[in-house]
Amino acid sequence: MIQAIKLTKRFKDHVAVDGVTLNIGKGQIFGLLGPNAAGKTTIIRMLCGIIESDEGEARVNGMSVQQAKASFGYVAQHFGLYEELSVWENLTFYARMYNVSDESPLFSLLDRYGLTAFKNQLAGLLSGGYQRRLGLACALTHDPKVLFLDEPTAGIDPVTRKSLWDDFYRLSAEGKTIFVTTHYMEEAQRCHQLAFISSGRIVAEGSPVTIKQALGNALVYIINISYLPELHRALLDTTGIILINQFGNELRLVVTPEVKRADLESAISTITGEPCSLAISKPNLEDVFIALTQENPVKH
C-alpha cells in the first residue's frame, strides 16, 4: 500500500533522507522509529507529497502520491486544527476538502473519539489529548485506505496513548494501513513492522521480534548498582561493550557474546570493591534502538 523507492532529500549540503526504501502491506501498522532529526518527518512528508524528493519515488495505493491524495489521510505533528473553529466546524471543513458531503459518518467519528460532548467547543480550547483525537477524526472523514501519523502520541499520557492505540488496531482490522513515526519504545513494540532510521538511513527493519535480534547474539547483563562515574569510564574502555544504560539503581550492559561473564564481574568488583553478580537477559527494543542510532556507538 505504501512504497518508497530510494527516497532521498537534501537540505543544502545536509542529506536528510538517504535512499530510503520501504514496502508496507495492506492493514499493517508500520512504525518508523528514529531519534530526533533522523529524517522521520521528512520521510512522512515526502510520502504525503508535501515535500518533493530529490531522488527516488513514493507510491501510495499503487498511485503516485499526488494522484493518491483522496485515498490517504495525514495527521501532522501539530495536527493542524483551526483553533477559532468548533470541533464540528473543523470536522465538516476537512470533510468538504475531501468532497465528503454526507454528515452521518462524521457523527460516528465524533462518537468514536469521544468528541460528541465537545461538538460545539472551540478546537483551541480542547485539551492536548482531545485535540489529537480531533486531528485524527479530521483525517478520517473521507475514510482513507492509508493513514500517515507523525508522532501521534507525543506528549500524551499513557492512558490516552493506550486508547489511541486500541483505535489504531481497530482501524488496521478494518483494513487500513497505518504509518506512524515515533521515538517511544512502548509504541514501537505495538507495531507490526518497524524500521529504524538514523541520520536519514534505515539501519534495521522487520517485526519487533526480528529487530530485537539485530544486534546478533548480543547479551544483556544487569547489576544492581547506583550510578558510579568511575565505573562508567572503565566500562567505556572495555572492549565488547555495546551499550551502557543506567536505570535508577540498575545498570544495564549490552555486550557482545565474546565478553565473558566472570571477567566482567571481576572487573566490576575491582572498581566497586564489592563482590558483583550479574543477571543475564536479552536485548530489548530500546537496547537495539540506542545501540544502532547513538551518535558515537561503542565499538563491538
Partner: peptide
C-alpha cells in the same frame, strides 16, 4: 497549511 496541502 500543512494539513490543507495533503488534501486533493
Amino acid at each position: 497549511l500543512e494539513q490543507l496541502l495533503v488534501t486533493p
